[in-house]
Design a protein around this nucleic acid. Structure first.
Lengths: 98, 98
DNA sequence: AAAAGGACTTTGAAATACAAAGTTAAGTAT
DNA sequence: ATACTTAACTTTGTATTTCAAAGTCCTTTT
């Protein structure tokens, strides 16, 4: 029996941050508005959850100009991918008996 | 692409409640102190998360005397099992691309 | 000049989480 | 009888989290 709930990563216990990380596991990079629409979030909500993940070093933020418009894109960092996979491992172990 | 994070059940976005439900999926029933030790929680913390799940109708609380001591046991209700499985389905869909 | 797009930041209110302490009720030991 | 323990909470108080809404700033399009 494995019930080590404390192996779950606090950074990923929120649905929005789960969604962001999932999106960034599948997509090398995703821009602000695509992510916002995909997860159905308000601007502020997305921005703040990204900031949280960025502070942990899990997400990299890239700002550039495309044509004449600013474009902010996000990608998962190496340690972000690692941390997320570890979180999913812990989750799986917890839930494997379904 | 499926990124419907709003299909995740709010009742299960907390690690303690995830742990409680996981334990109750594997075990038909589990008593207070076993659960408390298993998940490494304080009395009050366990009690309050159980109350939250009970309010949702996901957990059934049974109080009895065994020998001369009171014993509180928990089990997942039918709708608790259903809700939890639906939550896990939503999670799986979200994460299937790992 | 005004409106709109992009990407935030700030604000503020509400909900959540949790440890610690207090409570109740019934044993058990002295 | 008195004190202590076990079981299972409830209460208290603080801290953290969450989120929508509004405000900001910069640039571009109309």
């Amino acid at each position: 029996m494995n019930f080590k709930i404390h192996n779950l990563n606090k950074a990923f216990d929120n649905r929005v941050r789960l969604g962001i990380m999932s999106a960034l596991m599948v997509n090398d990079s995703m821009d602000f508005n695509t992510m916002k629409d995909l997860l159905d979030l308000t601007d502020g909500n997305l921005a703040s959850h990204i900031t949280a993940l960025e502070k942990e070093g899990y997400v990299h933020v890239k700002k550039e100009f495309v044509g004449k418009k600013p474009l902010t894109s996000y990608s998962a960092t190496k340690i972000g991918v690692k941390a997320f996979n570890e979180h999913l491992d812990a989750l799986e172990k917890l839930l494997k008996n379904r």
